[in-house]
Design a protein around this nucleic acid. Structure first.
Lengths: 235, 235
DNA sequence: ACAAAAGTGTTGCTGGTACACCCATGA
DNA sequence: TCATGGGTGTACCAGCAACACTTTTGT
């Protein structure tokens, strides 16, 4: 069989927008580039898609290299294809966003790749169109988390309600009434209360919860309308 | 400056999932391929992304060629990148979905490209992974239309409430109570009632409505929770 | 005993759903 | 006058938002 002789072949990369939550603040994992072009500028972690791998596989590989983590929540965001987005040579980029528990992250890998956590509201200038990618990822996270229980991917297996509240408040950059919040969360049937308390945050201590895996799938839809659309939080 | 010498360059195509509504039924625009590979098999309309164009531009171009329409609602859906998805040579495909008013569609262009409208529930086998693309587009349409007023893109400037109801019922493959439906639609403030009636559907005739452009942007969010999540219609 | 954070209940209101009949008209 | 599809109103119920005080315990 003949190949598609006359067509243009294009470089394809993946770039990962990695969100990490530490119980207090939402962060983004950025790297300082150790190579040209744009050496020493901040960028997202990325890499070219190779011959024998899908973009998903490439993204998983990169994420593993960067964070040491397997089984990370990873979702394709958007493909950026402006011909001039990379000044060296035309390169498309398939952007992915990832959600990880910052505390599980391995520090030594961090150092090896010049990677750093940056608070989401203090992101520096980024190369190419990476700023646009981050903006889109933030929007998508808000949008999706209002409808699906994906934010749990940012937490450890055991977490407290005050921490969960912090997380939602970071994502939506607003504050929620904790009584209503707790009630709503519990009404989803997704959480199981543990006997153990976290005493680091207060004298009284806050109960730990964990996801109820059985009900997780079944109650996915209960998150619909989870964020009451107050004042256009959700686009 | 040096180029990225050692990296693999890949063919990149766009494929369009084109939805068209005729007042009764939702349809998909398919073509019978006139060239190899898979000559005479059904496929989505697509084409390669060329050197000087973005994927968006390529999709707009293809859509214009296929339907004769400008200003079509077009949205990037997903990038399919499995190495073996095209048996001839590795080709990534950036899938787009489009919403058009079937009645504005130009028949002669249809013939030129071997294109045909196929009712959404009678889609034949498609080449490559196009079936997966269609399935994803259908999901996305349901998902998004539950939250945003995008289905109006499938209607002419003037339309009746019964037709709108048909449209929603086609998309969600279910039936809605027309009293509740009408009330809900009107409560969004998006529609203006016209004096004119459509008499083709009944003796009494149904009033035409048009979008209130002023309120369209402002009331976008009112669609939140538009489809009451009855029995997991929305994933 | 006090400071600091965790946890809990009630009320009013809004908005959703279920449901059945009358209206206008052309044939 | 009748058949066909268009249009409307009500009553019940669920779920959301607003709101403030009590509990626990370490220092």
């Amino acid at each position: 069989m003949t190949k598609y002789q006359k067509q243009t072949r294009i470089l394809v990369a993946v770039d990962c927008i990695v969100f990490g939550f530490d119980g207090q603040t939402m962060n983004l994992l950025l790297i300082k580039r150790g190579f040209e072009p744009e050496r020493n500028k901040w960028s997202l972690m990325g890499g070219f898609v190779e011959q024998e791998e899908s973009a998903d596989e490439a993204a998983v590989k990169i994420l593993k290299k960067l964070t040491g983590l397997d089984g990370v929540y990873l979702e394709q965001l958007y493909t950026f294809s402006e011909p001039l987005r990379d000044p060296i040579e035309r390169t498309m980029s398939i952007a992915y966003f990832a959600l990880i528990d910052k505390n599980q992250y391995e520090k030594q890998i961090n150092d090896e790749y010049n990677a750093e956590w940056v608070p989401l509201n203090k992101v520096p200038n980024l190369i190419f169109d990476h700023k646009k990618m981050v903006a889109m990822a933030k929007e998508k996270l808000k949008y999706k988390a209002a409808i699906h229980p994906i934010l749990f991917e940012l937490l450890p297996a055991k977490f407290t309600l005050p921490v969960l509240l912090n997380l939602f408040e970071s994502v939506y950059d607003t504050s929620f009434d904790k009584r209503n919040f707790n009630r709503k969360i519990m009404s989803t049937g997704l959480l199981l209360k543990l006997k153990e308390k976290d005493k680091t945050g207060s004298k009284k201590g806050a109960f730990y919860f964990k996801l109820d895996k059985k009900h997780y799938q079944k109650n996915f839809h209960k998150f619909l309308n989870f964020i009451p659309n107050p004042n256009g939080l959700i686009k």
